[in-house]
Design a protein around this nucleic acid. Structure first.
Lengths: 136, 136
DNA sequence: GATTGTTGGTCTCAAAAAGAGACTAGCACT
DNA sequence: AGTGCTAGTCTCTTTTTGAGACCAACAATC
C-alpha cells in the first residue's frame, strides 16, 4: 500500500463512483451507451445536416446493414434524438429528422468528431508505435 | 423523386460521404469506434482525474469484468490515450495514467459527458413516451 | 509452516450483439 | 409480364462481450 499512501485514498467501502457518478443509475452510461454505438455518431452527423430517408442513409453509409440501420434509427428515435415521419406516397417513404434534443446533443458531440478528424494522425501514429513495441 | 427534388440532391454516384467523411478511411469511425466502447468513456473519466492502478479501476467500475478492463485499457493505450507503467514491487503493481493526447481528447469528450448528465431526464422521458406509443 | 490474501492478469465457455443475405408487399414504369 | 423501387423483417453465421475459474509469487496471518 506504499504506492497508494502517497495518493488520495480511493476505496473506503462506500465510494464506488467516478467524479460522483452513481453506478446503479449512471446517466453517463445510460445515455452514452446509446450514442456510443458503431453507427450512431455517423447517423447523427448526417441528420444534423438535413433530414434523410431510409434509403438515402443506407447509401450514405454504405457498409451498414439494413438491420443495423433500422435498429440504430429506432434507438435514436426512442431516446428522442430523431423523429420518424411516414409519407403515404405510393411506395411509402419515411423521413428521419433531428429533434431539438438531438441538436443539443450534437453540439458537444460534434466537438469530439472534430477532434477525431484533427487527431486521427496522432492516433494512427500511437498505434504504429504500440504495435512495434509489442512485436519485440 | 418528388420528395427528393425539393431538397439538395444526395446521391450522384460519386458522393458517398457525410460532411466530407471518407468511408474507406473514415477518421471519425476509426477514432470514435474505440472511445465509443461501453467502458472507454468511464475509464477515461476516471483517469482524467488521477492515475489509477488496475485493481483500483476494477473497484471503481464494479461491473466491468477483468477481461474487458484489460482489453479496454490495452485499446486505450494502443491509441495513445493512456500510459501503462509497471512497478517492480513484490506483488508487481501497474499504474495507468492519461497522456497529453488523452487529455486533449477528454476536453471535448467531457462536454458530452456533462450533456449526458444534464439531459438524462429528457432522454428517460423520451423513452417512456416512445414505449407508450409503441404498445398501442 | 500451512493457509489465506493480494497483485495483474489469462483462459475457457456461454450469452448477447452484429453482419450477410434472402424475402416481403404494393405499386410504377416498360 | 417482367423489373425495380420503397422500407423494412427474418434467419443464419460470425464476432463481441460477460462470467468465472485459474495462475505464480510473495506477505501477512495463524
Amino acid at each position: 500500500m506504499a504506492l497508494n499512501a502517497s495518493r488520495k485514498p480511493v476505496l473506503d467501502g462506500e465510494e464506488c463512483d467516478v467524479s460522483g457518478w452513481d453506478m446503479d443509475n449512471c446517466p453517463v452510461r445510460d445515455v452514452l451507451d446509446r450514442i456510443a454505438g458503431k453507427w450512431s455518431a455517423l447517423l447523427l452527423g448526417a441528420l444534423a445536416r438535413q433530414p434523410y430517408r431510409f434509403g438515402e442513409l443506407r447509401r450514405l453509409v454504405p457498409d451498414i446493414s439494413q438491420r443495423m440501420l433500422t435498429q440504430t434509427l429506432r434507438d435514436l428515435q426512442r431516446d428522442g434524438y430523431i423523429e420518424r415521419e411516414v409519407f403515404p406516397t405510393k411506395p411509402p417513404s419515411v423521413e428521419y429528422r433531428m429533434t431539438d434534443l438531438g441538436r443539443s446533443l450534437f453540439e458537444p458531440l460534434s466537438k469530439v468528431i472534430l477532434w477525431a478528424e484533427a487527431n486521427h494522425p496522432s492516433v494512427k501514429a500511437a498505434r504504429v508505435k504500440y504495435d512495434e513495441s509489442e512485436l519485440a
